[in-house]
Design a binder for these strands. Structure first.
Lengths: 348, 348
DNA sequence: TTGTAGGCGTTATCAA
DNA sequence: TTGATAACGCCTACAA
């Protein structure tokens, strides 16, 4: 009783307050369908009536009900974006950018984060699909089989980002993380460093970091440079650096880090231990986060072009969106390689 | 023609593929309402039937349609969270935390970011309300009048966070930023620094940063310490530090920064210019971001307890949620002060 | 505990 | 260009 009463009241209150399209129609002395049409295609309605509707909307403070709209249209204008973590600047940047781009196509962004768990991702995808989204954007290409099945069966447009794959669920936009690792290795090799290590964080979950480590290790080995890979279970942070360095089997001349945050930590730790950078220890990061160009010395890193990824993802979505697609809205490109930029700076 | 054909096809395809509750009901040989009931209150259905339904759902790969559900129930289980920026660690942390907490109450989070524009916020609120959200969470207390009206009229539960106010739209959770500024000032005063400055970023838009600056300045003046306030239009970043320092009328003994990111930039810049920290220049930040404890020297800062804010906000929402509320679901506390912690470290 | 009926606010189809 | 009408898939009284 205590529970149902307020609930009922709340519902009734909300319903009573809501101004519906019918109210607007009455006020403007037109039919509801005309109002609906005006809202969706203003140019299909005569100017006179359009203004009357406009006026009524303002007068009544009408707020459209997308829920009802989505039901009737069998699909909402929501795009569900699922990332490993919002705390990670790469992803929050991508999301920010994506949201802006999609808004231009009147698409709304629903963000979810998996904390690097494929199971959690599956749950989020399930929830996302319940909203009949215009598209689903996933990070990476490692998903549970159920996730893939769910998405494929459903037929919703899907974009996997930040990574490449031979077998996308639908479309993919990203670059090769192994190549990133190799590129850094080649830089170190060119500098003539005689030993190196990759300092990784959470690589069991973060497949992309693991890929970078693999590429780095392989290339180093190929050139006969002794190389170690050290790993930390905690998420990448400046604080992990000290631990990571302590876990090295033997001191090394150069380190490639999971990302710039870890690299910054290594820089601090070197400062603390009195190790000269890059004189005694060369450091490279990944991500080109804002501080990387500012630190002393500035960090050598790799710029993944989050904004280009976002732009391409938005393209992919729009290509599948009936309301936005310009041409035949056909099957756009399946996989897009955005590449990356190596940014050499003083730290390594 | 080129446009409508694919659109129509897509819609049909989607509809045809969709497994509805009726399908599940048929498969389980029960009525649709039983399925619905089971989904919402599993314990209200007999075990035998529950299992049959469960089985049918798995068999058919049924995905509930929240759009239809939301329409019928006159309200969705979406919480719209609107923050100034996701790039800012405070907010991405709060959002992350909030999302986790709300998920426990089967509430989904819809994130929007305003880029510090009240007009953009108004647009987002309008869009949010179109989804008949369970609640709307706003950052700060500075909104357009239209935003306030819209929200008040609509009757949706609202929580304003990260700031306190005498006149909340509905509920508010946060702390006094003026007090933060004063607290830092008192610390500097205690140390006996004879001059100081506040290095602010984007204070025209970021009212909270402006509040901290005001508190800092007032307290300094009250104690007769010469104080400057310098401002930068660009968003807070490590890169803004150099500019900010250059805009000082005269060198100062201590600086309070807009946040830790700027403080880190000042630290780097000092290092670059050969200024001893804290010997010649004391630095304080705001936010207690992860790197602040790791830098050399570690940064004096203020910890705002993003997670407590998130927890309180979640409480406020649940208190207004019929499905979650335990007691009379009445009007909970209106304004909650979460306070903050001053964290003295070596930099200042 | 389970089933029946009516409606939620909008869109899309068609006819006027 | 405008309007009537039938879904859209589910929820919620209420009845059984």
């Amino acid at each position: 009783m205590d529970q149902t009463e307020p609930a009922k009241a709340a519902r009734k209150r909300r319903k009573m307050q809501r101004v519906t399209m019918t109210d607007v129609a009455k006020h403007a002395d037109v039919s509801p369908s005309t109002v609906s049409l005006y809202l969706r295609k203003p140019e299909a309605v005569s100017e006179r009536i359009g203004q009357r509707v406009e006026h009524a909307i303002a007068e009544l403070g009408y707020v459209p009900n997308y829920v009802a709209g989505g039901l009737a249209a069998a699909g909402s204008r929501v795009v569900s974006v699922i990332v490993p973590s919002l705390r990670n600047a790469f992803f929050s940047d991508t999301v920010t950018e994506l949201e802006k781009l999609l808004a231009e196509s009147r698409l709304q962004t629903l963000v979810g984060h998996t904390e690097y768990s494929a199971t959690q991702e599956e749950a989020l995808v399930r929830a996302a699909l319940s909203w009949a989204p215009a598209a689903v954007v996933l990070t990476g290409t490692a998903h549970t089989q159920a996730t893939r099945d769910l998405l494929r069966r459903n037929g919703t447009p899907v974009v996997e980002m930040w990574e490449l794959t031979d077998d996308p669920i639908d479309q993919a936009v990203g670059f090769s993380h192994e190549d990133v690792g190799r590129r850094i290795a080649r830089h170190f090799i060119g500098k003539g460093y005689e030993s190196a290590a990759f300092l990784g964080a959470r690589m069991g979950d973060d497949k992309r970091a693991a890929d970078r480590a693999r590429g780095f290790e392989a290339e180093m080995r190929a050139y006969g440079v002794p190389v170690q890979v050290v790993e930390d279970h905690a998420p990448a942070s400046t604080g992990s650096a000290a631990r990571l360095l302590d876990n090295l089997d033997s001191p090394v001349r150069a380190v490639a880090c999971s990302n710039d945050t870890v690299a910054l930590g290594v820089l601090f730790e070197a400062q603390r231990r009195g190790i000269a950078v890059p004189g005694e220890l060369a450091i490279a990061g990944f991500g080109d986060l804002e501080f990387s160009a500012q630190s002393v010395p500035p960090l050598t890193t790799v710029r993944p072009s989050a904004s280009e990824i976002a732009a391409r993802v938005a393209d992919c979505i729009r290509a599948r969106d009936p309301l936005t697609a310009t041409s035949g809205a056909g099957e756009g490109p399946r996989v897009f390689d955005t590449g990356f930029t190596f940014v050499p700076r003083e730290s390594g």
